[in-house]
């Protein structure tokens, strides 16, 4: 059962989940915002892919840039318009705001585009399969693994080697003190949203790539995955989120194989029960990190 195919499957699923979780936890780390609108960045990226490919007829690489850019822009705009004014209010006010933003974006798409799903064309390579050492796997599984490695390396360089990254890590630890170093609050927060949108956009390409369609509630499932992966891995560091993503991918695949067919529709429920029981014994998640719960003043 644990063969190469399972391994590649798990790695690719884990990669996708790790990207999803990482984008969520970056904003959480700095703003202490559990961002319910995060799924909508993924959904908007999907519509960006659809719009640029079907309406604008752009080449495939340009549609991808377009989709990712749409997510980044949405993320940044939601920060400016909604999260910035609410930032100093209570923690719940921020979360409720993100929920309202999520509902707003879903319904805006519902009104402006359509409640019905749209087909998204991705380059043919996404649907091809290859044969590696006897294991057959879709090429996109390999692409996501490769992309995730590149993204994680770049992210870690950004966080460790650039002043912006250092400032973001500092802000996640002690927000006010970071401002006392002269780091503008808006700079680190906007940066977090932009990177979060970037990761959502990249993940969206692969998420949409599996079903080749997008509808107004496309964002709900990846949001939940990001949620569960972060609480499992640990909400207190980016590393925790990435680890949580991979562990989630592994658990998911194991359950898919071991659960009897009649129970497969409860897979998510099982996943979740496992996670909650695990949290009872280890409330911080797998990785204890450095993020504190100090809020932005």
């Amino acid at each position: 059962m644990i063969d190469l195919e399972f391994l590649i499957n798990t790695l690719s699923l884990g990669s996708l989940y790790a990207l999803l979780a990482l984008g969520l936890v970056l904003v959480y780390g700095i703003l202490k915002l559990v961002n319910f609108a995060y799924g909508e960045y993924i959904m908007i990226a999907g519509y960006g892919l659809y719009f640029s490919a079907t309406v604008l007829q752009l080449p495939w690489w340009a549609t991808m840039l377009f989709g990712v850019a749409a997510a980044v822009l949405t993320s940044y705009l939601t920060e400016l318009a909604a999260f910035r004014p609410v930032r100093t209010k209570s923690a719940n006010a921020l979360i409720v705001t993100s929920f309202a933003v999520s509902i707003f974006l879903q319904n805006a798409v519902l009104i402006l585009v359509s409640p019905r799903a749209r087909a998204v064309q991705l380059p043919p390579i996404f649907s091809k399969t290859v044969n590696i050492a006897g294991a057959t796997t879709p090429v996109r599984n390999l692409l996501i693994i490769g992309t995730t490695i590149v993204v994680l390396v770049l992210m870690s360089l950004l966080m460790k080697k650039t002043v912006l990254g250092i400032a973001m890590r500092a802000a996640a630890e002690k927000f006010t003190t970071t401002r006392l170093m002269g780091v503008p609050a808006n700079l680190v927060i906007s940066a977090a949203f932009i990177i979060s949108g970037l990761l959502a956009g990249i993940a969206s390409i692969f998420w949409i790539g599996r079903s080749s369609s997008v509808d107004p509630i496309t964002g709900a499932a990846p949001l939940l995955i990001a949620f569960i992966a972060t609480v499992m891995g640990g909400m207190h560091s980016p590393t925790g989120a990435v680890v949580g993503g991979f562990v989630y991918g592994l658990l998911f695949n194991i359950l898919s194989i071991t659960l009897p067919a009649s129970m497969i529709s409860y897979r998510d429920a099982f996943m979740f029960v496992i996670v909650v029981l695990f949290l009872l014994f280890r409330p911080e998640g797998i990785i204890k990190g450095g993020y504190t719960e100090e809020r932005v003043g």
């Binding site: 409720v96 933003v101 509902i103 319904n107 009104i111 409640p115």
Partner: peptide, 21 residues
């Protein structure tokens, strides 16, 4: 038009949270 109600409620909610949390 579907979803107008929800979109407007969402805006109302954020507005309230900004001006009168």
């Amino acid at each position: 038009v579907y979803g107008l109600t929800e979109a407007v409620m969402a805006i109302a909610m954020v507005t309230i949270l900004i001006w009168r949390p």
